[in-house]
Design a protein around this nucleic acid. Structure first.
Lengths: 230, 230
DNA sequence: TTCGAGCATTTTGTCGACACTTGACAATGC
DNA sequence: GCATTGTCAAGTGTCGACAAAATGCTCGAA
């Protein structure tokens, strides 16, 4: 999953390894929101000193995955409705723009590859792994070919957060089959517009997709909260 | 200046002080692009150990003010035409949106205060300090009242970069009086729309202002480069 | 029982030291 | 004269240790 976002594998510094390691654990939900991350405990578990751990925790904080309170340490950021709102608002600002901007830069082969994936998910609607792979691949199209360094970085960050949120809500109960069908339809429409290189249509479809995605997540999140509280 | 963007003065950790210190020096141009920042040298000059220096350099890298090459160290990011293009593109995406989103949240008193500043700059067109203060204050209005944590952070980062670029180009030769008059006019129009709480007009005016700002900067930057090369 | 003072524990912030990587330059061989 | 190799200095990556800060706990007093 990490390779989808960043390739730091060539860099062999410990801090990068720790960073990637913790990042994946947080996004996938294996480390739960609110968990404390004491430097010494982590360093013992990984058999390294505190220095690379500290730097990795700082890197994670910059992206919003951890919150560091001075002299108190790092904790994994909670998945709140505020976070969800902020992240999806950013996605609604950035992703349609990125899609429109790079519509003519995405190679035909890439489009066909993802289109194939979308088709597959429709044929196998119960394959969650396939669904995630398809969804990630599709959204990657919209920042992989972005040239603006900052836009790219911000999209990657917000996309990572949204992935985490989706892992978070899908742990309790999966999307309803009704919602899944909506997603497929939106994906198909997006790929069609992309293949036609229709920038304006693409912009609107991606925006629409993100907006709907928020609604689906908020619904799942509220169900999650109700299910846990009492 | 730093207080305009971030207030870490209450934080008593060394890394924050080093961060703020270096950040201001880089933005204001007192540390020039391309300058190497060796940890040991900095630690000797500041009479502290390398640890807080390292963390500060990492913080600066996250914002794009330094580039860290593994095992080679940190250098101050160059001010290139690519950087200018990317930063202003981000500003064009984020600032109009932020202005529109917070148009009803900005207090009347704040509007009047900045309007007063704008008026002053028109009366004293040669006061560069006043101009900078006014420009910063006006743009601050558009993110000070943004609630979205990520949007706010991204705007602050890009605004800092654009400030640095402007310091950079204004060192060689200042804006022409013609350009200055354009800026005043744009500022006045923005404040009028803000006072009228006209969200759509504000969006367009801010977008227009950012676009023009890019043109002014690129012109100054090209003049800068021509002046330096041979 | 409740509250606060003071102590003990936990954990970070900072430090100095060492090893290793990198790039530059000199030495060697062809 | 040019390419290759070896050496060296510079500087980062990582380490273990200590001190300071924040938290939680114990104990005693109201």
């Amino acid at each position: 999953m990490d390779a989808l976002f960043q390739d730091l594998s060539t860099s062999q510094t410990l801090k990068d390894k720790v960073y990637l390691n913790l990042r994946e654990l947080i996004i996938s939900g294996k480390i739960k929101p609110g968990t404390r991350l004491p430097e010494e405990e982590l360093s013992k578990q990984m058999n390294i000193s505190r220095a690379p751990i500290r730097e990795a925790l700082n890197m994670l904080e910059r992206e919003g995955f951890t919150t560091i309170i001075p002299r108190r340490g790092a904790i994994v950021t909670e998945v709140t409705s505020d976070l969800v709102r902020d992240i999806w608002e950013m996605r609604a600002i950035l992703e349609p723009y990125a899609a429109k901007a790079s519509v003519h830069r995405i190679p035909e082969a890439e489009i066909d590859r993802i289109s194939g994936l979308v088709q597959k998910t429709i044929e196998h609607p119960d394959d969650l792994d396939l669904y995630v792979k398809c969804d990630l691949g599709l959204h990657m199209l919209f920042y992989k070919y972005v040239t603006n360094h900052y836009l790219k970085e911000y999209i990657i960050t917000t996309a990572s957060h949204s992935l985490r949120v989706r892992y978070f809500v899908e742990y309790s109960d999966s999307l309803s089959s009704h919602a899944v069908r909506d997603v497929y339809q939106e994906h198909t429409a997006i790929m069609t517009a992309l293949k036609a290189r229709d920038a304006n249509a693409l912009y609107n479809l991606v925006l629409h997709h993100v907006t709907n995605s928020l609604a689906r997540c908020e619904q799942a999140l509220s169900g999650e909260e109700n299910g846990k509280k009492k």
